[in-house]
Write a protein that binds this DNA or RNA. Sequence first.
DNA 1: CGACTCGTTGACTCTCTTCAAGGATAGTGG
DNA 2: CCACTATCCTTGAAGAGAGTCAACGAGTCG
Lengths: 248, 248
Amino acid sequence: MAILPTAVSRPVPSLEAAGACAACAIRELSVCSVLSANELTRLCTIISTVNLDAGRTVINEGEPAGDLFNVVRGSVKLYKLLSDGRRQVTGFLFPGDFLGIALNDTYAYSGEAIEPLQLCRFPRKKLETLLAELPRLERKLLGTTAHELAAAQDQMVLLGRKTAKERVASFLVSLSERAVKRRRPALPLDVPMSRTDIADFLGLTTETVSRTLTQLRQARLIATSQRNRIDILDPEGLMELVDGATDH
Amino acid sequence: MAILPTAVSRPVPSLEAAGACAACAIRELSVCSVLSANELTRLCTIISTVNLDAGRTVINEGEPAGDLFNVVRGSVKLYKLLSDGRRQVTGFLFPGDFLGIALNDTYAYSGEAIEPLQLCRFPRKKLETLLAELPRLERKLLGTTAHELAAAQDQMVLLGRKTAKERVASFLVSLSERAVKRRRPALPLDVPMSRTDIADFLGLTTETVSRTLTQLRQARLIATSQRNRIDILDPEGLMELVDGATDH
DNA sequence: CGACTCGTTGACTCTCTTCAAGGATAGTGG
DNA sequence: CCACTATCCTTGAAGAGAGTCAACGAGTCG
């Protein structure tokens, strides 16, 4: 955690006391993990659940930032557009990830469901009020934001200085690490996003992504058994392509 | 500001009461701007001033994050390295900017003085303690971090999707905007960093940066009167290159 | 003055893009 | 169950934008 890396002590929550939030499958992965049972109960009063089909927009760059969200199920791509349509995907979100922190009153980027999506919605005004009374949550948000910033800086290194092969390898390793953090099976790796999304995330074209995956397959580093699944056959070999200095 | 865009009310500081911090020339530009006179006095007890020559290292990626800093005078480049020496500059800091927020106990990137540098140093442990008692400061740090994150996302768009000409134009416009925010003369634009630094920031080579500046000069968009100075002759023309609507 | 660094320019190379086509996959409706 | 279609993915050939290698000029410092 950012300025305060020391662990934030959290009272053990008694599940019965916290309503729907107590049963939340991704609570321990989310910002809510720092809350006590009592605090969780309070937070629980302002939230609502949202379900979206794949391809639906969650938030839109430039529009008023009325809500913030926790991803409960599914995945989201975040992106920014240039006026001529060029797109840069700035990140992917998975269950437990937080969405919607805005600098001013408008969203700074767009978000779209990749798979069928379940979200936990926090009305911003209500969350702001509550935040003043939940310093642990505010501190956790600072940590989350600092974490996102660090990830963004790693991505700058990737976009500014890495080759296509290094970018694709970095992407696969990073997906794999996130799957582990979410306690999901790391193999076969779940790759819900399209080649276009991956290309727009890595600053490449779909063709280059496809060709590079073929290269990695021919080098026996990966295998593609089924659609949206990639097997990492040689994690160390892939890691070597990621190149040193970036830590995860 | 991030979750709480509404202005944070701040008692008018009485300059006499706050010691050295009260006379700080960049206080209003920095995170300290949210503090009352009393709070400023408290913060003042833990800080010290550091002076560094150009080229000296402020922080080093991977080393224990013992201190945080405010830039008082001069400028800093932040960067990350790949193991083979490739470098990505992730940002430049100017007076008022804050430096050193770390995810864990080590710095996530390196920082080096571009010009002779004056810093205000906060020992991290002491700042952490104080932070618990200064919620306004903590909230301000969240805002600062969210702002850096937004800048990082803009940079991702630049690195992933913009042409060399658009990158250089974006860089100049961004420098100009920051000069205005710091109440400094926007013309001629002060460009303290080397071509190598600019190239490593924009994901290009020094040669490409140089050639692109020549292009912009030949197009009468800019003029280079003296070293480390660039005149923007046609702000609108430059602006048009930033978002990629009409280029080439 | 000479050595050094930094910035500019030129010629050539190369990685990735662009343009084009074909193949795989999933969903739809008869 | 199988065409029919749309979309996604893959592969090939050609092209372009930026990189590499190299040389030179300008300013700086001992």
